[in-house]
Write a protein that binds this DNA or RNA. Structure first.
Length: 332
DNA sequence: CAGTATTTTCCTGCTT
DNA sequence: AAAGCAGGAAAATACT
């Protein structure tokens, strides 16, 4: 698994996307990494499972407390990969510990060594030690990884930096952020994706929505969609809401304009669109398209129109889960 | 399998 | 001029 350099590449690609000079007012968050790439690739929440089907990870199926040093290392590099963390920023020499030692680390310590990933690791461990079944834990991984990636990406250490797990929401659709198949995400394509383009009406399902006209950039090379139906409840508005109500996720992406009224604004519209696209495994999502979907919400009173102000929307009476009262337990 | 819901994609025209 | 906003149309797919 010497994929670390690729990973850091991808990572900086992501940075370059997230920090595209779209909004100069946001210069406050500096990732402190070199920006190498300049193409539009976002590769945040896609869990590039390093272990392809065949073999299980050495650490899986065993309680972290009982891991050997090797297993610990395995697990850490697994997390690094899956979180698309720039591995070069991590001092692996400090990972020389067994599971018991690892488990006894305070979140601060982990953060010290791993940066924002430390929080990730901590909550991950916590989850594992509190006996989640295997099937669930990867989902939880993803949830948390998702938030960590945001923090990572946004380069700003989370204020308090707690586990920041997804909160139970109450909306009927149960909506939260799990989605994302483990198996079928290849890396999102970058420059070199064109060679995948050959036969497109393959066997698999096509992407949702009207097919794009041919003759444009072959941006999407995701073919092997398995029939892993994304759970319902991940609607666009919920996605937006979830970002908004979690300040940790929210940095620089969206902000409340009037919290009480449910008025919010896109700060970095394209970045949010990319994120949404990732969630839907659609690398060609744009704000333009996302906003079309948002406009459909007006009719259903999920959003109310706010006119005159660009990038500003307002939750309507058929939306839920965003009011302060409704959100209480889910932050700090 | 049919129908509905929710997007996604595209497009034209208008406004900032 | 570029980026948003408005919606209509059409298509895909998830869900019922």
């Amino acid at each position: 698994m010497a994929a670390t350099c690729e990973i850091s590449n991808v990572f900086s690609n992501y940075f370059s996307t997230m920090y595209s000079p779209e909004d100069p007012t946001l210069a406050s968050v500096a990732p402190a990494t070199t920006f190498g790439a300049d193409d539009l690739v976002v590769s945040l929440s896609n869990p590039q499972m390093p272990l392809e089907g065949t073999e299980k990870a050495s650490w899986s199926g065993e309680q972290p407390q009982f891991w050997s040093k090797a297993q610990v290392l395995d697990w850490i590099s697994y997390q690094v990969e899956r979180n698309k963390v720039d591995a070069s920023a991590i001092d692996f020499s400090r990972c020389d510990m067994d599971g018991a030692t690892l488990c006894s680390c305070a979140p601060e310590e982990l953060r010290l060594v791993f940066g924002p990933l430390g929080d990730q690791l901590y909550s991950q461990l916590w989850d594992m030690t509190s006996s989640f079944p295997d099937e669930l834990s990867w989902i939880i991984d993803l949830l948390e990884k998702d938030s960590a990636s945001f923090q990572e990406t946004l380069g700003d250490p989370g204020p308090t930096g707690t586990g920041s797990s997804q909160s139970p929401r109450c909306s009927d659709s149960g909506g939260s952020d799990l989605d994302l198949d483990p198996g079928d995400n290849r890396l999102l394509c970058s420059e070199g994706c064109a060679d995948h383009k050959k036969g497109e009406p393959k066997h698999g399902k096509r992407k949702r929505g009207r097919p794009r006209k041919l003759g444009r950039e072959p941006r999407d090379c995701l073919e092997g969609r398995k029939s892993k139906h994304a759970p319902r409840g991940t609607h666009l508005w919920e996605f937006i809401r979830d970002i908004l109500i979690q300040p940790e996720l929210n940095e620089g992406l969206l902000k409340w304009e009037d919290r009480r009224e449910g008025v919010f604004k896109f700060l970095r519209s394209e970045a949010v669109a990319q994120l949404w696209g990732q969630k839907k495994k659609n690398s060609s999502m744009t704000y333009e398209k996302l906003s079309r979907a948002m406009r459909y919400y007006y009719k259903r009173d999920i959003l109310e129109r706010v006119d005159g102000r660009r990038l500003v929307y307002k939750f309507g009476k058929n939306s839920s889960g965003w009011k302060e009262e409704e959100v209480v337990g889910s932050q700090d």
